[in-house]
Amino acid sequence: MAMALLWAVGVSSWGCLGRHLARHFSRAAGREERPGGEELRRLLLDDLAPTPRSERGQELLFGLSPCLLALRAARRRVARLLLQAGRSGLQGERAELLRVAEARDIPVLRLRRQKLDALCRFQVHQGVCMEVSPLKPRPWTEVEEARPGDDPQQLWLVLERLQDPRNLGSVLRSAHFLGVDKVITTGRNSCPLTPVVSKASAGAMEVMDVFSTDDLAGFLQAKSRQGWLVAGTVSCPGPEISPSSDIPITSCLEFLWDRPTLLVLGNEGSGLSLAVQASCQLLLTILPGRQLPPGLESLNVSVAAGILLHSICSQRKGSSGERKREHLLQDPREPSTTSEGPGLAQHPGLSSGSEQERQNGS
């Protein structure tokens, strides 16, 4: 009987909480505080969890890669390194983490797993946390001016009002992996650079150049006048594109990267704002492989970012894609001047598992 009563109270409390959250997001959407509200309202509560903070009010960075890369980059002030107690004989990256912390006279504290779990709000910390100062985007005015003639294959990624920390982290990870030069975010209505973002980016956030602007349309127009191509992104051509718009829409597979480019991605739910879309010279889209029902005609923003960036960056001179195209165009009677094998084996993002399988005779 007691268990049934507790269960009923729990359900009632959760129902009240759910109604409260629904009213909160409904009012916020009415005030247009959260652009793209419908998709964002469907996010799980833990996707928008509060930023983990230490007992002294600093941010609590968690996860092996974020902590190690933060130490290497030395962009943050580090108050303490927190390690899970009971892990004897630290090896590999954990041993390096401890060595770097001790070399910089950073206090090291060993805590029980339960204490680390509570401090991190039960995020996946891998037994490693650090009390650190916040990391914030720099004003875009601090960007070192790069003239279009310096390098025709410069690529900056511009993010308008991304609000899900895991989406932002995944986008930053792909951008860093694929060779994006700089990232620009909007100063308002955007997710800050939190520890959750750093963990989702596998620490890429700690080493990337991230800038922000409060006047994105003005920034894009200024870069356009300097000779940059401003390429926005849209889902399959549909109602979000004004019928009177004269901005050409091109499949990302047909895009030719022949000058410095700003690739602009929009909010998770509403895409690009009208002002930003009007500042674009070209709109890129990812064409689906089949007829799609309503509601599935667009991709998650982090997935779309990976596809778009790869389709552009594969055109970079010296990339494996460029070498492959040269190989296909080469006269078969001439000796080959490129080799896919060494190029792939040396790529830092690829596993050496296939080489190990060959050695084992599989």
Rank of each mutant, 00 (worst) to 15 (best):
S12I: 10
T233K: 01
R94I: 06
S26H: 14
E93P: 11
G271K: 12
V124S: 14
V183I: 14
L329Y: 11
L155D: 02
Q277T: 03
V234P: 09
L274K: 09
S224I: 04
A175S: 07
G36N: 01
H125A: 04
S362D: 15
P335C: 07
E38C: 02
Q281L: 01
L157R: 07
E355H: 13
A217Y: 05
Q315P: 12
L256H: 10
H327I: 03
W14K: 03
R333L: 14
P293H: 05
L45A: 06
L116M: 02
L329E: 06
G63H: 13
A28Q: 04
G86K: 03
H327K: 02
A4Q: 14
S198N: 05
E131G: 13
L284C: 11
D331E: 06
L168N: 09
Q330N: 14
S245E: 06
G232K: 02
A79Q: 08
N167W: 01
R77D: 09
R121E: 00
S320L: 03
C280M: 01
L272G: 00
T185Q: 03
D246L: 12
G295I: 05
E131V: 05
C191F: 01
A175K: 09
P342Q: 02
P348K: 04
T141H: 10
R188V: 08
E357Q: 15
R259T: 08
A79M: 04
R104Y: 06
V9K: 15
L282W: 02
L69R: 12
A118R: 13
T185P: 08
T285F: 13
E142A: 07
I106V: 00
V100C: 05
A4C: 11
V276L: 05
E131F: 04
M130F: 11
S13P: 06
G289V: 14
K223S: 01
V171H: 05
L172H: 10
G203P: 09
R104A: 01
P195C: 06
S198M: 09
N167I: 04
C120M: 09
L40G: 11
A73C: 00
S13W: 15
M208L: 11
G89W: 05
D214N: 14
E254R: 15
S311A: 15
R147L: 07
S244D: 10
